[in-house]
Simulated assay, not measured.
Amino acid sequence: MKRVAVYTGTFDPLTLGHLDIIRRAIALVDKLVIGLPTQSSKSPLFSPEERLAVVRREVAALPGEIEVRQFDGLAVSFASSVGAHIIVRGLRSGADFDYEDQMAAMNATMAPDIETIFLVAAPGLRSIASSLVKEVARGHGVVEHFVPPAVAADIYARLR
C-alpha cells in the first residue's frame, strides 16, 4: 500500500521553514500531496493561482513524488479525497502545538483512518512565519534569510 500524506497551508509566501517540512515529509512517505486552500481568512499577498505556481516551482527539483494542488473545504476531507492516510503539520512553538493538537483531535473524530504527524521545525527556522516575512517585506526589510531567492524576488516585485 502506497503511503500518501498531505501537507496543507496557504504558503503566502512559501518559506524556508515550509520547504524544510516538505523535504522531511517526503522522506517519510511514498507520495506527498501539498494542498493550498482556495479560500483563506488571512490577507494574502499572492492569489491562489500565484501561490500554486510558486510552490510547484520550488518543489520541482526535490526528490520523491510530490503533487501540488488546490482544494476547497477541510484539510481532512482533502486528505481523504486524495487517498492520504497521513496529514503532516509543522510546529514552530508550543503555541503551534496547542492549536494543531486540537485540530488533530477533531480530524481524528471526523476521519479515524487519517493520522496526523507533527514535524518540529529545524531550530534555525522556528522563527519564520509567513505573516512576519510579509511584514518585513512591507517595511522594506530583507527577506532572503527566510524564503528561497526566487520567492524573495516575487515578493519584491509584488510590493514595488
Rank of each mutant, 00 (worst) to 15 (best):
M1S: 06
M1W: 00
K2I: 06
K2M: 11
A5C: 05
V6S: 04
V6A: 05
T8K: 00
G9N: 04
G9W: 05
T10R: 04
T10E: 08
F11E: 07
F11S: 08
P13K: 03
P13W: 09
L16G: 10
L19W: 03
R23Y: 03
R23H: 05
R24I: 15
A25L: 08
I26C: 08
D30R: 00
D30E: 14
L36V: 10
P37Q: 01
Q39H: 01
P44G: 12
F46I: 13
R51S: 03
L52F: 09
A53S: 10
R56D: 03
V59I: 14
V59C: 04
A60D: 10
E65G: 07
E65L: 12
E67K: 02
V68H: 04
Q70C: 07
Q70Y: 00
D72L: 12
G73F: 08
L74D: 09
A75F: 03
S77P: 00
A79I: 11
A79Y: 03
S80D: 15
S80C: 01
S80Q: 13
V82F: 08
G83H: 09
G83M: 11
A84D: 13
I87L: 14
V88W: 06
R89K: 15
G90E: 10
L91W: 10
L91A: 13
L91K: 07
R92P: 01
S93H: 03
S93F: 08
G94C: 03
Y99V: 14
Y99R: 09
A105S: 14
A105Q: 15
M106F: 14
M106D: 05
I114E: 11
I117C: 07
F118R: 09
L119D: 11
L119R: 06
A121I: 09
A121F: 04
P123K: 00
R126Y: 00
I128D: 02
I128R: 02
S131N: 06
L132R: 06
K134N: 06
A137D: 13
R138Q: 15
R138D: 08
R138M: 15
R138N: 11
V142Y: 10
V143F: 05
E144V: 08
H145S: 10
V151M: 03
V151C: 06
A153Q: 13
D154E: 15
Y156W: 06
R158Q: 12
R160I: 10
